[in-house]
Computed example of a mutant assay.
Amino acid sequence: MRRKWLRRIAGTLGAVALILLLYLFAGLAGGAIPAGGPAPPDRGGGVGGTGGIRIYVEDNGIHTGIVLPKHAAAMGFDDLVRAGDLADPRYAGHGWLSIGWGDRAFYIGTPSWGDVRPATVAAAAIGSDAVVLHVGHLPEPAGEPGVYPVMLTPAQYRRLVAAIRASFAAGRPVHGYGPSDAFYPARGRYSAIETCNAWTGRMLRAAGVPMGWWTPFPVTVTAWL
Rank of each mutant, 00 (worst) to 15 (best):
R165E: 12
T200K: 10
P89H: 12
S128H: 11
R104E: 15
G46E: 06
D59L: 09
G143F: 11
R54N: 03
V116E: 09
A122Y: 09
G109D: 14
W96M: 08
A166M: 06
T153M: 10
G52I: 04
R90A: 15
L152G: 11
F25L: 12
E144A: 10
N197Q: 12
Y157D: 02
L204R: 09
T222F: 04
W213A: 15
L204F: 07
T120S: 06
H94N: 15
T200R: 10
A170Y: 04
S191M: 13
G44M: 00
V47I: 15
G102V: 02
D78L: 08
G11N: 05
E140H: 08
A198H: 12
P139I: 06
L24V: 04
D88A: 13
M151E: 12
I19Q: 02
V81R: 03
A119Q: 07
Y148Q: 02
P210K: 06
I66C: 06
Y91C: 05
Y184W: 01
L152W: 14
R104F: 04
G11L: 08
R7K: 07
N197G: 13
R165Y: 08
C196T: 08
P111R: 07
F77R: 05
L160H: 03
P179V: 00
L225P: 10
G44H: 13
F77S: 03
N197T: 11
G45Y: 10
P210Q: 03
W101H: 04
R202Q: 14
V67G: 04
H71T: 12
N60E: 05
D181Y: 00
Q156R: 11
G95K: 00
A163Q: 13
V131M: 03
D103Y: 12
S191V: 14
V147F: 05
D88Y: 09
P216A: 05
L18Y: 00
V81L: 11
G188K: 04
G93D: 15
R187T: 06
L204W: 09
G127C: 13
V67T: 13
A35H: 06
V209C: 04
L138R: 11
P139D: 13
G44E: 06
D181N: 06
F168P: 01
S180Y: 14
K4G: 11
P216V: 03
W101V: 06
L68P: 04
A186V: 01
V132H: 01
G109P: 04
R82G: 09
S167D: 13
P210R: 06
R7T: 00
Y177C: 00
I99C: 09
L152V: 13
D129H: 14
G136P: 00
D42W: 05
G31S: 03
Y91G: 08
L204I: 12
L24H: 04
Q156A: 13
A73G: 09
A155S: 14
S98R: 07
P216D: 01
T220C: 08
T50H: 15
V132T: 05
L6A: 12
P173S: 00
M151A: 15
S167E: 09
A15E: 02
A39V: 05
T110K: 03
T222K: 07
R7C: 00
A170G: 11
P89G: 12
A223I: 04
L160G: 11
R172W: 02
L21Q: 10
S112Y: 12
Y23Q: 10
A10P: 00
F106L: 15
T200N: 11
P118K: 02
E140M: 09
E144Q: 15
R165M: 01
E194G: 05
R54L: 08
H175F: 10
